[in-house]
Structure formats: structure tokens, C-alpha cells
């Protein structure tokens, strides 16, 4: 740990970008499974998928890799931000004017909200699913914990839906800058591919945000 704090600025950014890009794979898998809940009134497909994720040994191992990815991304994010603040001890009177990359200025802010969301989200679903009591439901394919019902129940709570939507919107802003920025940090800046990467990054952040937000909204208003 001691040495990792003294890594050079570029090494820290490279580690952060690799961890960040890796976390997107988690978001996509998570979104894919979540969306199942909307297309099945009995939640059979969702509960089956959730059961698979909770029991498959490969996924369970990968869960720890994912957890480490989160920790690395967050810790380096905080270290980098603290260094950045200390690099300008006397602030400007007139706020800096810069026309480019609006969301990049708020990565720590959007990141902090997403982190708080993550903790609440963890307490609401992950801990309940892992350690709490969840009613069981029996389908033709077998008996599973009815996590789908837990999700729907939670998404009937107004303030939680509101918080969820806001947090996911901010995650979208975080991704909009983060995805393309990660490639630049890794040294990938190409006259042909960079515009494509930027477009894919924007598209992905919109898809991820809308996909996640659609679920509580549909449940709450139906």
C-alpha cells in the first residue's frame, strides 16, 4: 500500500482507467439481468438469473475481483483528487473558463454520489439477498428466492425511486467523461478511432443510464 501511494501520476491514472473500464462490464451484466424483471410477470427469468449469479463458483470468484476493482477505482480517485486540490492552494478569484468536457469537472462529485448510492443499494439488495430472509417461489424449473418481488417492493417507495434515478443520472455523467477519458489515459488517441471511442462512450453511458432508470420508473408507475 505504501508504494502504491507513491506511484507516479500517470501510473495512478492508468490503474484508475483500467479499473473503471473493467467496472463497465459489471454494469452491463447487471443491467442485462435487471431488465429481465420487466419482461416476466412471474420474475422467473430474473430469479433464475439471480440464482445463477449467486451460486455459480466462477461468478462468485469474479465478485471479489469486481469488489477489488471498485475499491481501487475509488481509493485512487480520492488520492488523485486530494493531490489535485493541493496543487492549487490559492484559488482564482474569477472562476476558470473552459469550454471543453463539462462533466470532467465533476468526476469526484458524481463519483461520491454514486458511491453513497452504492452503499445504500448494497444494504437494500445485496445484503438482503445474501444474508436476509427472502420468500421462496417455485417454478417448473425449480425453487428460487423471489428476489424479483423484493426489487418490485422496493421500487414502490417514492423517495427510493427518486434517489435511484438521480444517482443513475449522475453515473451516466460520470461514464460520459470516464469512458473516453480512460482511453486517453491509456495513451490511445487516434485521429480515426478517438471520435469513434467518444461516440461509443456517449452511447454506452446513455444506454446504461436509461436502461437502469427505466426499471424503477416502469415499476413505480404501473
Amino acid at each position: 500500500m505504501g508504494k502504491s501511494l507513491t506511484y507516479s501520476s500517470i501510473t495512478k491514472k492508468i490503474i484508475m482507467s483500467l479499473a473503471g473500464l473493467f467496472l463497465i462490464s459489471f454494469l452491463l451484466v447487471h443491467l442485462g439481468i435487471n431488465l429481465l424483471i420487466l419482461f416476466d410477470n412471474t420474475y422467473e427469468s430474473f430469479n433464475t438469473a439471480a440464482h445463477f449469479m449467486a451460486t455459480n463458483p466462477l461468478i462468485q470468484t469474479f465478485q471479489w475481483v469486481l469488489f477489488i476493482g471498485f475499491i481501487i477505482h475509488i481509493i485512487y480517485g480520492i488520492i488523485v483528487q486530494l493531490q489535485n486540490w493541493s496543487a492549487r492552494p490559492v484559488r482564482y478569484m474569477k472562476k476558470g473558463y473552459s469550454e471543453l468536457s463539462f462533466f470532467s469537472k465533476f468526476m469526484i462529485h458524481t463519483g461520491v454520489v454514486v458511491f453513497i448510492f452504492l452503499i445504500i443499494h448494497f444494504a437494500n439488495f445485496f445484503i438482503v439477498a445474501k444474508f436476509g430472509h427472502v420468500d421462496e417461489v417455485t417454478y417448473k424449473s425449480g425453487t428460487y428466492e423471489n428476489l424479483g418481488a423484493v426489487v418490485v417492493e422496493t421500487f414502490k417507495i417514492g423517495w427510493y425511486v427518486a434517489f435511484y434515478v438521480v444517482a443513475l443520472l449522475l453515473l451516466g455523467f460520470h461514464l460520459e467523461h470516464g469512458i473516453q477519458s480512460a482511453f486517453q489515459s491509456l495513451g490511445i488517441n487516434h485521429w480515426r478511432y478517438t471520435p469513434v471511442i467518444k461516440r461509443i462512450g456517449t452511447l454506452l453511458s446513455i444506454l446504461i443510464t436509461l436502461g437502469f432508470i427505466a426499471i424503477p420508473l416502469v415499476i413505480y408507475f404501473s
Binding site: 501520476s9 495512478k12 491514472k13 488523485v80 493531490q83 489535485n84 493541493s86 496543487a87 492549487r88 476558470g96 473552459s98 469550454e99 471543453l100 468536457s101 470532467s104 469537472k105 468526476m107 467523461h177 473516453q180 477519458s181 486517453q184 489515459s185
Partner: peptide, 15 residues
Amino acid sequence: LGFGNCTNTYACEAE
């Protein structure tokens, strides 16, 4: 020397 880290905001290029 205590310069900050790059967050790819690109204000540098603009200015």
C-alpha cells in the same frame, strides 16, 4: 514538484 494529475478536461489545449 507538486503539479496536479491530468483528468482529461482539456482546458489546457483550449487555452
